[in-house]
Write a protein that binds this DNA or RNA. Structure first.
Lengths: 192, 192
DNA sequence: TGTTAACTAACGACCGTTAGGAAGGTGACG
DNA sequence: CGTCACCTTCCTAACGGTCGTTAGTTAACA
């Protein structure tokens, strides 16, 4: 039980201060134990970090997949656009996303290989899922301008990344400003 | 002379390891001096960091402005699209951009205020310049679908950010894949 | 002569980590 | 049922190492 609280606290610290900036001292203090007690649960800082990462990736993967499954009955536009609103409501898991974004862009140098080996499959899988979703939906709706679904998926990912990042780091208002600016243009470029 | 080499080396280290992860020891060694010699040029780590940041922002601001001035004679599409190619060629200054992106998203906690006070005006100014450029060009060309130039600028920024980030962190191929995917869709959504 | 930029030596603080032990719970066995 | 061994989880104390920083000195140069 303490182990998962420890993991969740560590993730928050890693997200906020980065690998090098996070201190086991402060993490332990936040959990309410002493620093050496961490070693009863994890082999060390690296182990704590990589475990937090594995856990965050697995959780987020399920979390994202769940949304697109739950909106099977909606139109493609409603599903794609609704993802932004849904994401906003689910912002409890901000720490995990911030953590993932941070280590994806700026992995700790000494764990670079381990990080990219875990991160790349995550993003690849997201892109594949999205491509498949676009293809299947377009077969029914015949709504998209081009049948290059892979490019459409990549473009959608670029837009979501850009706006989500804005949300995670600059707050709701900046996010909504950016989303209402970019979505109409993007969608207009996407459909017939 | 050593002072500017020091600055440039420090920037590279900050970009790669972050504020907390960068070590004065290693920076000095990279320059070819001993650690305490840094204090002959800067008051300390904070001063080194903030000076590097101020310098990088000023340089990049001029650098970006120069492009859009130099393409006054081109069409709006050529100017906006050409920016991506131009940026790719100018990739010498990658360190500066990587540094700026890193500290914009993940500022060192203890210098958070100083960083945002310098970063926000930078991005605001970019957006204002872009909005003005779009308005002036559209007055001549009458090409854009909407006259909401601020939204268009914000959308363009989202797309550039998304693809540039991809370039800085995942290399040229990932960048070009993403750009060729997103640009046609974006431009189609933008024009009449 | 004063200034600049380098050096060596050393400071206290914090880092991640290890050793060793105390408290509490769990399960096996007589 | 009692008890003994074991494991888990926490603790205190301390380790070697690195961190940013300061003091004090020296050589070069204006």
């Amino acid at each position: 039980m303490k182990a998962s609280l420890l993991l969740q606290t560590a993730l928050r610290h890693f997200a906020q201060h980065g690998y090098e900036g996070a201190s086991l001292q402060e993490i332990a203090q936040d959990v309410g134990i002493k620093k050496p007690s961490i070693y009863a649960h994890y082999r060390g800082k690296d182990d704590l970090f990589l475990t937090a990462m594995t856990h965050a990736l697995a959780t987020q993967k399920i979390h994202l997949a769940t949304y697109f499954i739950s909106t099977r009955h909606l139109s493609l536009e409603e599903s794609l656009k609704g993802f932004f609103d849904w994401f906003l409501e689910e912002s409890t898991q901000n720490d995990q996303l911030k953590f993932i974004l941070r280590i994806a862009y700026f992995p700790p140098v000494k764990l670079e290989r381990e990080v990219t080996d875990l991160i790349n499959p995550f993003f690849d899988s997201m892109q594949r899922h999205l491509t498949r979703l676009l293809r299947e939906r377009d077969r029914q709706e015949q709504i998209l301008y081009s049948d290059d679904y892979e490019s459409a998926a990549l473009a959608y990912l670029t837009v979501t990344e850009g706006t989500m990042t804005e949300f995670v780091f600059n707050g709701v208002e900046a996010y909504q400003r950016r989303f209402t600016a970019v979505w109409p243009i993007f969608w207009r470029g996407l459909v017939r």
